[in-house]
């Protein structure tokens, strides 16, 4: 476990020293959400209808943004070779890196989302369920993203390809997350969607690191 936390801590340290931690991702999220009224017009009734969906789309784009460097940096400088040979199983190394990724991208969004929801005139009763949906769903975004990042880790320019591979994989999470927000916004019970969202994250937790590690071993060949 010592190795697991050391890796997660190292990734966090690197994120704070070189990438400003989650600040950049949050900035991206905020700007994307602010662009929505410019695109569709400022009518509050229209914005309140699309707010949950737009927040989710902004969240998964923000998550995508840092994904292609998740493993690539370590593959390029040789760290991944040494991680693969270490006593820490590569699957757990992937999990540690996903944890650090979520702490620097997913978690800050939970704080930024309610603020952006105000600007998009989201109905008040939807705030709690929306944040809860993001809390349950964004870990899945990091974990699923790890698969795409693993498959493109050995490539010099994998950024766009990572997006093309990962975005379709995000469809179920997006649909359920937005449904939870929409249900709450129209006064319905969002709990079935929240449970399904939690189920996706729980299923991803063991399975995605397994697949991503297999993909990474290929990248190291």
């Amino acid at each position: 476990m010592r190795a697991f936390w050391a890796l997660a801590r190292r990734d966090l340290t690197l994120a704070f020293r070189t990438g400003g931690g989650g600040a950049l991702g949050v900035a991206f999220f905020v700007i994307t959400a602010v662009l929505v009224p410019f695109g569709v017009g400022p009518k509050p009734d229209l914005l309140s209808v699309i707010a949950p969906g737009m927040l989710w789309i902004a969240a998964l784009l923000a998550c995508m943004l840092t994904l292609d460097r998740l493993f690539q940096a370590d593959v390029e400088d040789g760290s991944m070779d040494l991680l693969a040979l270490s006593p820490l199983a590569l699957e757990l190394a992937v999990l540690a890196k996903c944890l650090a990724h979520w702490l620097t991208t997913g978690l800050p969004l939970l704080i930024a989302a309610p603020v952006m929801a105000i600007t998009l005139s989201m109905p008040g009763e939807a705030y709690g369920p929306m944040v809860l949906a993001l809390a349950l769903g964004t870990p899945a975004l990091s974990l699923i993203g790890a698969i795409g990042a693993g498959l493109t880790a050995g490539m010099r320019r994998g950024g766009v390809l990572t997006a093309v591979l990962v975005l379709p994989l995000y469809v179920p999470t997006l649909i359920l997350g937005a449904l939870a927000g929409n249900a709450a916004a129209s006064g319905l019970d969002p709990s079935p969607y929240l449970m399904l969202l939690g189920a996706i994250t729980l299923a991803c937790l063991p399975l995605c690191p397994l697949v991503a590690a297999a993909a990474l071993r290929l990248a190291l060949r």
Partner: peptide, 14 residues
């Protein structure tokens, strides 16, 4: 095994 490749596996920020 202890392996040392072409690459140094060091991080500029640490």
């Amino acid at each position: 095994v202890l392996y040392t490749g072409h690459l140094d596996a060091v991080k500029p920020a640490l």
